[in-house]
């Protein structure tokens, strides 16, 4: 599994970089994911609780268009995945999806989409967006493709969390830790996010971001920082009003 995750990071890193910013990094995720998941295309939309909604990146123009359709029509698997906080896996868009999304499903189908798999980009209550995987043939994702899609989603989550840190000049690539790997005591990391949320009087997303930015700046692992927070040896201050 660790090998698989590093293989996926390798695939993403192998994509040609244009600007190196967040949108570009997400485009690399989309393009690598399209190839690795035998998809006709992929898209990443950013949706947050404060109302930000829109397509951030896609592997190709057609996927970007299909991704945009759901915001235009106000329905679709991506929006459902966000609302329900779990993946929405539609192996056959011509099936009951047609009645579930009476506007979106026929439109997407007309554009050649036969299957859609939407993965929320989230860490607990921190909701950042959705990764959509489109296929031009009906059929379920294999176990391996599902596992890989979840890994791609993890990378996208990290990129989105680090967007604020980017402005502060944080390092390009996360060092050794990631959201899900290498943190021995994952529960502690999530507990730390909850604590920091109260300390900074911000959202859980802000808290997760502050912890990561701190770990980069201090060159310490997320696990160590989380342990200090939970032990109350480290506190964060509220942002200026």
């Amino acid at each position: 599994m660790g090998d698989r995750a590093s293989m996926i990071r390798g695939l993403i890193a192998a994509q040609p970089v244009r600007t190196g910013g967040l949108v570009d990094r997400l485009r690399c995720v989309c393009q690598a994911a399209a190839g690795a998941l035998s998809a006709s295309g992929t898209g990443i939309s950013v949706l947050t609780d404060d109302g930000t909604r829109g397509v951030y990146a896609a592997s190709d123009p057609l996927s970007e268009h299909v991704e945009e359709l759901q915001f235009l029509l106000g329905e679709g698997p991506c929006l459902d995945a966000f609302d329900r906080r779990r993946p929405v896996l539609i192996a056959d868009l011509a099936g009951e999806a047609m009645s579930r999304w009476p506007m979106y499903a026929p439109e997407a189908h007309d554009r050649g989409v036969r299957a859609v798999f939407a993965f929320p980009l989230q860490i607990g209550a921190a909701r950042l967006g959705v990764l959509d995987v489109f296929r031009d043939r009906a059929g379920r994702l294999s176990g391996q493709h599902l596992a890989d899609a979840l890994c791609f989603a993890d990378v996208a989550v990290e990129a989105l969390l680090d967007r604020q840190s980017d402005d502060a000049g944080a390092p390009e690539e996360p060092t050794h830790d990631s959201v899900t790997d290498a943190v021995a005591n994952r529960a502690e990391l999530f507990q730390a996010q909850g604590m920091v949320m109260v300390q900074i009087r911000g959202s859980i997303t802000d808290a997760a971001d502050r912890i990561r930015a701190y770990a980069y700046a201090e060159n310490r692992s997320l696990g160590e920082v989380a342990r200090d927070i939970v032990a109350d040896d480290l506190r964060f201050e509220a942002d200026r009003p």
Partner: peptide, 21 residues
């Protein structure tokens, strides 16, 4: 898969809530 992944994320929300409380 949908339900299991949803529940795994709920586990994370529970840990975050523990920390906040």
């Amino acid at each position: 898969t949908e339900q299991l992944q949803g529940a795994l994320n709920t586990r994370i929300v529970i840990e975050q809530a523990k920390g906040a409380v």
